[in-house]
Amino acid sequence: MTNHAAVSLVLGDIVAQRVDAIVNAANPSLLGGGGVDGAIHRAGGPEILAACQRLRETSLREGLMPGHAVATTAGKLAAQWVIHTVGPIWSPTEDRTAILMSAYRECLRVADELAVTTIAFPAISAGAYGWPLLEAARVAITTTSTTPTQVAEVTFVLRDQHAYDIFRLALDELGS
């Protein structure tokens, strides 16, 4: 694969996106939580939770490790798939950038396996996991725009104007 995805930004709600796959910034249990994770589970309905429970009973008994990704149905969402990934918790003393990069790359790998051409990402690790927003944006945009993939369009869905403005700054800095 020598293709690279085009990157765009949207101010809005990730669960309302009409794309092939929506990325869930999940916790390792895959069983729902707050923020994006909770919103996706609520909007998608019980099918998503049931699929995650099946994964926990079979191939992911210990949960999903940070930097990895797995897909489930999207339930009632407009998307066909939810790709769940766990980002790293930010640390002021340990550089976990490689794990955050892996979360984005693994989502694109799973998307390629599913023949996804459009995907919506949240700002992984930039909420409850405390990653500084500008650094999270730089990692997100750099990783998704340089990772070889058959995905044609990556959209970052930002929930508020501040996050959108920070991602816009990072996108402009990187010349994407």
Rank of each mutant, 00 (worst) to 15 (best):
N3R: 15
H4N: 13
H4T: 11
H4Q: 14
A6I: 06
V15C: 12
A16P: 14
A21T: 14
A21I: 13
V23S: 09
N24W: 10
A25C: 07
P28G: 01
G32V: 11
V36G: 02
D37P: 00
I40A: 05
H41M: 08
R42T: 15
E47Q: 14
E47I: 05
I48Q: 06
L49I: 12
L60G: 05
L60S: 03
L64I: 07
P66M: 04
H68N: 13
H68F: 03
T72V: 14
G75N: 08
A78R: 10
A79H: 06
W81A: 14
V82L: 08
I83L: 06
H84Y: 09
H84V: 14
T85K: 12
T85N: 10
T85D: 07
V86R: 05
P88V: 07
P88W: 05
I89P: 00
W90T: 01
W90R: 02
D95Y: 01
T97G: 01
M101W: 04
S102R: 03
Y104F: 12
R105N: 08
C107P: 01
L114R: 06
L114F: 07
A115G: 06
A115C: 09
T118R: 04
I119W: 04
I124H: 00
P132G: 09
L133N: 01
R138W: 04
A140D: 00
I141Y: 10
I141D: 07
T142M: 04
T143C: 08
S145Q: 14
T146V: 04
P148Q: 03
D160T: 04
A163S: 12
Y164E: 06
F167T: 00
L174H: 09
G175D: 03
